[in-house]
Simulated scan of single mutants.
Amino acid sequence: MTEQLHDVRLVINGTTHDVQVPARRLLSDAIRHDCGLTGTHVGCEHGVCGACTVLVDGRPTRSCLMFAVSAVDTEITTVEGLTEADGSLSPVQQAFSDCHGLQCGFCTPGFLTTITAGLRENPTPTHEECRDMIAGNLCRCTGYQNIVKAVERAAEIQAELSR
């Protein structure tokens, strides 16, 4: 028996993607396989590691826990959508580069989207708030120190740009 496909319109990084997906297609799979945006990584597939985090209507969301059909009528931002309009790095991306906040890079897209949302909510976090901001994302390579430094640096860059 053939699984029924559903017409789904996803707005990702400001671009509309009309795709046909099974009802149980995960948003992470639709983003990667149906829309060709491979920056969103899938790690644990259980919502634990945070590698698949994207922004859905500005909020960090584990795309491995959401069905694509549930994302209709939302605005999705993936790591590819974080760059500035001129193609330059966002403050969070620049801070990760400046502070060496990554090693293998597998978890980085989830960290970048999570931190982007976190700094929108709290643009001047304390050191402890920076640590709390990333508490739901796992990295197997780093000791998190440079990631925390990157959060602090991103807040500084954003403050400098808003002056």
Rank of each mutant, 00 (worst) to 15 (best):
V48H: 14
E129K: 13
T61E: 13
D73K: 12
C44E: 12
C99A: 07
G50A: 14
L89I: 06
A95R: 08
T108R: 11
P123V: 07
T124Q: 09
E3V: 15
D34K: 05
A85G: 00
E3I: 14
L161I: 02
C49Y: 00
S90C: 09
M66N: 03
V79F: 10
E45W: 01
C35F: 07
T83L: 14
Q158E: 13
V19A: 03
T108H: 06
R25C: 09
L37W: 03
F106G: 05
N137Y: 08
L138W: 04
I134R: 04
T2M: 14
N13R: 08
F106W: 13
L102A: 15
I134N: 10
A95Y: 00
G105P: 02
D29K: 00
P125N: 11
T16M: 04
F96R: 03
L10H: 05
A71F: 06
H17L: 05
T126H: 02
V72E: 15
A30F: 08
L102S: 15
G110E: 06
M66T: 15
S90G: 08
L10G: 04
V54E: 13
R163M: 05
H127T: 03
D29P: 09
G118M: 04
C99F: 00
G136S: 07
G81I: 00
V69S: 03
R120M: 06
P109K: 06
V48N: 14
Q145M: 05
L65E: 04
I76R: 07
P60F: 02
S88I: 08
E45C: 09
C104P: 10
T126Q: 05
T74A: 07
T114Q: 05
E156M: 05
R140F: 08
D7Y: 01
C35L: 11
E129M: 05
T126A: 01
N146E: 11
C99T: 00
N137V: 05
S70K: 12
E128S: 15
I157T: 03
G136V: 03
D57W: 13
E45F: 07
T116W: 10
L82A: 06
H100I: 01
E128V: 07
G58M: 12
L26S: 05
L37T: 00
D132V: 10
C130N: 02
L5C: 06
Y144Q: 02
D7F: 11
V54F: 09
C99E: 13
T2P: 15
A95F: 02
G87N: 14
C35Y: 01
V92F: 11
F96H: 01
V148H: 10
S88Q: 13
V79W: 12
E3R: 11
E128L: 12
D29M: 10
V148D: 07
Q20T: 10
I12K: 05
V72A: 15
T38L: 04
V69D: 02
A51P: 03
P123T: 08
N122A: 09
S28R: 07
H17N: 14
A155E: 01
M1I: 12
A71K: 07
R24Y: 14
I134W: 04
P109W: 06
G105F: 02
